[in-house]
Design a protein around this nucleic acid. Structure first.
Lengths: 95, 95
DNA sequence: ACCTTTACTTTCCATAACGGAAAGTAAAGG
DNA sequence: CCTTTACTTTCCGTTATGGAAAGTAAAGGT
């Protein structure tokens, strides 16, 4: 059980959604995340880069359906930070 | 029951805490909120002003213990927005 | 081989958010 | 009056964020 720790990197709306989408699955395609968030390529790319630089997600490029695609997944560090942040939110809003 | 609606004004860390503190009570003193958030007078004053201008909180100045003090309370609009935002957060993080 | 498409990435730019520090204000009390 | 208390506002610099557009790289078609 990760301890409650507010994380402002994760708190930002778009990044919170990215982490929430990635948390329950092993990985998701860039385009799928983009469609869920309804943001532009450049905006998602920048958030992905920020999370990657914090070692919260890992980025894998792989060819799928004859196209190079980007897959995103939470790292262990990222999962711990995400769960810690969710715990912090719950503490603030009182469960 | 208020419907889930992400509210970026409320989402900011300090303002989320302000709303969360005010939600369960009828009102709180400025100095009490300030002590809870551990922020400076000017920072709290500016967030209070932002929430007040959105009609999310009401500000009452009243003399108490022979000093003019400021009391804060959520308006109905503010409570609805807060609950809507919490609902949106729950939708994002999955309960 | 060349051109186009797809799938991002990076850069450029403008705006807005945020906090610290310090100056300003207003009401009490000595 | 002058000081203290309780904020409020202003000034300032940093960081965040997004849109638009240019850049890159790998496939696939011809």
């Amino acid at each position: 059980m990760s301890k409650a720790c507010f994380d402002s990197l994760i708190h930002a709306h778009n990044r919170l959604q990215i982490c929430a989408l990635l948390h329950p699955v092993s990985e998701l395609e860039f385009s799928v995340v983009k469609a869920q968030l309804e943001v532009s390529d450049s905006v998602l790319s920048k958030h992905v880069k920020a999370l990657e630089q914090a070692n919260y997600i890992s980025v894998a490029k792989r060819v799928s359906l004859s196209r190079p695609r980007t897959w995103l997944s939470l790292t262990e560090l990222g999962e711990a930070a995400y769960l810690g942040h969710v715990a912090a939110l719950r503490e603030i809003v009182g469960l």
